[in-house]
Amino acid sequence: MHSRRFFLVFLLPILWLLVACDSTENTTLKKLVVGVVSYGEGARSLEQYAALKEHLGAELKSLIELEPALNEIQAIDQIERQNWDLVFAPPGLAAIAISQAQYVPLLPREGGDQERSVIVVRDDHPAMAIKDLSNTTVALGQRGSAAGYYFPVFNLYGLTLAEIKFGSTPKEVLKWINQGEVAAGALSLAELGQYRADFKDADFRILHRDSHLVPSGAVLIGPDVDNVLQTQLLDALESAAPKTKRSVGYISNAQPPDYEYLIKVVKRVQPIAQRIREKPAPIYESTVAPAP
C-alpha cells in the first residue's frame, strides 16, 4: 500500500509536467508579421487582407499579424529594421527592401511592367517643359515611391526649386496642384487615372512622362525567415483562392519583376536628394550624375 502511494506521489508531478508541456506546445504559435502600405486606409487594408490572413494562418499553423503602414516612410523604417516577415510592396519599396535590407522577392503584384512616372500640372499652367519648373514649388511622393519620388527626382536633376512638398498620398499631390499650392506634382500614370475623377472641376496636363517602365510591386520575404518556412509561405500564397489573390493584388505561378534598373535609379537619386528639403531645394550634386 505504501509503495503504491509513493509511486503515485512520484508519478503525478511527472504526468502534470508532460500535460503542461504538451499544452504549451499546442497553444504557442509562430508569429509572422505581414507589412502593407495602406496610405492612411488602415481599416480598409485589414478588411482587404482578412481572407489571406486567415488562409496563411491555417496553412502555416501560425499567428498572422497584419501591420499597415500609413506611407512609404513608415514602411521603409519597418523594412530597415527587418520587422516584417512578409511584405506586399509597391515597386520603389521593393527595390529598397531587396538592395538595402536583404529581402527576397517571391511573386509579382498586379499591374504589370507598363506603369510610368509622370509630372503633372494644371492645364492652365504656363510650364511646357521640365526646365520651366525652375524656382517653382513642386510636389513629390514620399521617399520610397518609384513613380512619385525616385524617377521624378532623377528627371528634375539640375534644377533649383523654390521648395519641394511631399504628399502623403497621390491624391494629396493632385489636390495641391489643383489648389495652386504647387506648380507641378509627380505620381504614376495609373494613380493619375485613378484619382483625377475626384477633381471634377480640374483639368490636369502631363508635363513630362518618363520613358522607362516602372516594374510592378512584389511580395517579398524577410531575411530572417528560414528556407523551410520560405517554401511553406510560397506554397500557401500559391494555394490561396483566386478571389483572395485578387483582393490583395498578387499573381501566383509567376516570376517576380526585374528591379535592376530601378535599384540603379534609387542609388543615383540618394546623393542627388541630399539637400532636397532645403528652401530653395537644389536637385543636383557636385558632380554630374551619369544615366543609370
Rank of each mutant, 00 (worst) to 15 (best):
L18M: 12
I221F: 07
P170Y: 08
H55Y: 10
S38A: 12
R44T: 13
Q230S: 09
A127H: 08
R143K: 15
F10N: 15
G112L: 07
P91S: 15
S216K: 10
I272S: 00
P215V: 01
L107W: 11
K243A: 14
A51E: 13
P91M: 02
L12S: 14
G167N: 00
P91W: 05
T169Q: 03
Q274A: 14
F154C: 03
L220F: 11
D224K: 10
I206Y: 03
A43W: 07
D235H: 14
H208L: 12
L46C: 00
D198S: 02
P280K: 14
G111P: 10
A69I: 00
R122G: 09
Y157A: 02
E238D: 04
F199Y: 13
N26C: 14
E65A: 05
K264Q: 10
E238V: 04
Y284I: 02
D77I: 06
V104N: 04
K31A: 12
R122W: 07
M1K: 01
L11A: 11
E260I: 10
D22H: 15
R196L: 13
A183W: 06
R81H: 11
T244I: 14
R116C: 05
V9M: 11
L29I: 12
L8K: 06
T287R: 14
T136M: 09
D113G: 06
G40W: 12
E110C: 05
Q232G: 05
H55Q: 10
L106S: 00
G180N: 06
I276L: 11
K200M: 04
I96R: 11
W84A: 06
K267L: 06
E285C: 11
A146L: 08
G35D: 11
E59H: 04
F10C: 15
A291V: 15
Q274H: 12
F88S: 01
L15Y: 03
G42I: 04
